[in-house]
Amino acid sequence: MLILAFDTATPAVTVALHDGSRVVAREAAVDARRHGELLAPAISSVLAAAGAAPAELTLVAVGTGPGPYTGLRVGLITARALGDALGIAVDGICTLDVIAAEAVSQAGGREFIVATDARRREVYWARYKASGERIGDPQVSSPALVPAGHPVAGEGPWLHAGLASAGEPIGPRYPSASALAGIAAERAAAGLAPAPPAPLYLRRPDAAEPRRPKRVTP
């Protein structure tokens, strides 16, 4: 088994290669404006580091967000095109769950929140049991509407002081493709069917229907 995993739903571009039992190569960079430039070279680089050819891949795992749309789509279309070209399955995994997988150990046996940047002074967030199991669907809202009193992972508390004071900030700040690959490997080992790599936008596109044309005659 050779799993290529990546996530572009946050400012991080994170890529990892997993052989079914462990991560064999990884690369990460944080640059919210350059997902489209960084992702493909990072994939080439982890393959080269492991001495693997694209044709040896058996599964692609990708973060499905929620996250700012432009960056999110870079990962999703890359995963879909790679899966298509290589004739392998693509497993889509919620980006908040990826952060949660690493936050469990820092939550100290408590329920916790994962909150990431949704721009426009809002956060994408979800609540997790101490075990790392998500409670309900991911949400987008003002930080003030996130349940208080729980440790908070993700970039949310770094950006919104209110979130940091409502609960104790814990790591990680960004998702890691190593954790994503680990989830995908477990899912594959358990015989679960890959989930579609569908974007979690959570918002409708901004678009207003036009008003009547303005008069030009004074």
């Binding site: 432009t70 890359t78 095109a81 790679l82």
Partner: peptide, 20 residues
């Protein structure tokens, strides 16, 4: 359109990478 271009460019990079 920047966001629209990025979808095609990312797909093309993935196809090129997969196929060498």
């Amino acid at each position: 359109l920047a966001g629209a271009l990025l979808v095609g460019v990312s797909a093309a990079k993935a196809y090129a990478l997969a196929l060498g």
